[in-house]
Write a protein that binds this DNA or RNA. Structure first.
Lengths: 195, 195
DNA sequence: CGATGTGAATCGTTTCACAGCC
DNA sequence: GGCTGTGAAACGATTCACATCG
């Protein structure tokens, strides 16, 4: 979020920003903003604030999006297609460079810039091309075995849309995007706050 | 997550479960599980554990999914269509009962069980039907004004897919689903853990 | 004896207050 | 005078230890 805000400021031509203003924009306290930025290694100047350009550069490097991540998309259903259609990914340095599906009707068709490949070829293809990040957008039942294949092929980060907790060795980072869970959290928040 | 696990156990026919086993399944400690469940009001029996059926019933009520939430979908692009295609929503007591878009080419077409309506009619329609939850799946630029219309129409909970922080009075709960932010978090985790 | 609910200890995070720099 | 970086205090959350119940 710091990076997002900083990029917005850079685009507006703001040269320098104080922790107080950053905090306002993020809904945080100024002390916390300073503590967080110091954690990444103190870029600010007393009396001045943070140089926006410098902040963006450092944070992009720290987040790891100072270069493009090639990403494999596994599953070309409605979620997969929504991701392929989303130009925001490339803008933010994630590039879907391979697409897999197990449905023979889909294999060979074009998807974004790619041709859909058979999931049977997943391991070989990813290993060969050194792809280390994947998006898993398949039905619940298929998620665990495919995740294991991804891990075996050298993938270290997975964004998982299936509503199941995937079990993998801890060196593989899995981020879950469970839409119904999010709606349930929304419902819970509404209940707890009495709406 | 407690509810998810409990429902899984119920489906498997498990009658009773201990905090230790729940903790294992969730990747937590048994003490934390007990603390969390006590927070919602202590359903367990010493020496026995928690009755799964009771747990499910209570948690569904607490989360607020003991009845169906009618939900409005605003934006019928690729994300909107992916949500309409996702039968998991209805299974978990969220029902998309109204769909809106501003594109004349889409208005009047069918989407799921609905006909796409003009966003111009959004306020009237939602107020009239008492719809209080909405999914906002529109381009960044359109999100803020539409969110304001939703709030004005009595919506108290919004799931927002646009990569912008929506500003609304605090009585409206907004949950953001920002896919590139999630990929960036994944990238950061990989960097921080040295992969 | 197994497992809960609970209060005390522990841990990490956020806030606060301020010395020091621009 | 404004604003950062920093150590100490405050806070909240998790863990621990145990009295208690089935």
């Amino acid at each position: 979020m710091y990076l997002r805000i900083a990029e917005g400021l850079l685009a507006e031509g703001v040269e320098t920003i104080s922790s107080r203003k950053l905090a306002q924009m993020l809904g945080l306290t100024d002390g916390l903003v300073r503590a967080d930025l110091v954690y990444f290694g103190a870029f600010g100047r007393p009396g001045v604030g943070y140089r926006v350009a410098h902040l963006v550069e450092e944070l992009r490097r720290i987040v790891g999006i100072d270069q493009v991540w090639p990403v494999a998309l596994v599953g070309c259903g409605s979620v997969g297609r929504a991701l392929l259609a989303y130009e925001g990914l490339r803008k933010r340095s994630f590039d879907i460079v391979a697409v897999f599906d197990s449905d023979p009707a889909k294999i060979g068709r074009s998807a974004g810039n790619c041709r859909v490949q058979d999931t049977a070829d997943l391991g070989r293809e990813l290993t060969q091309r050194g792809i280390r990040m994947a998006i898993l957008a398949v039905p619940s039942g298929a998620a665990q075995p495919l995740a294991e294949q991804l891990a075996a092929a050298g993938v270290v980060g997975i964004m998982n849309f299936a509503p199941v907790r995937i079990k993998l060795p801890p060196e593989v980072v899995v981020m879950n995007v469970d839409l119904t869970l999010i709606l349930e959290r929304l419902s819970l928040r509404l209940k707890v706050t009495g709406r």
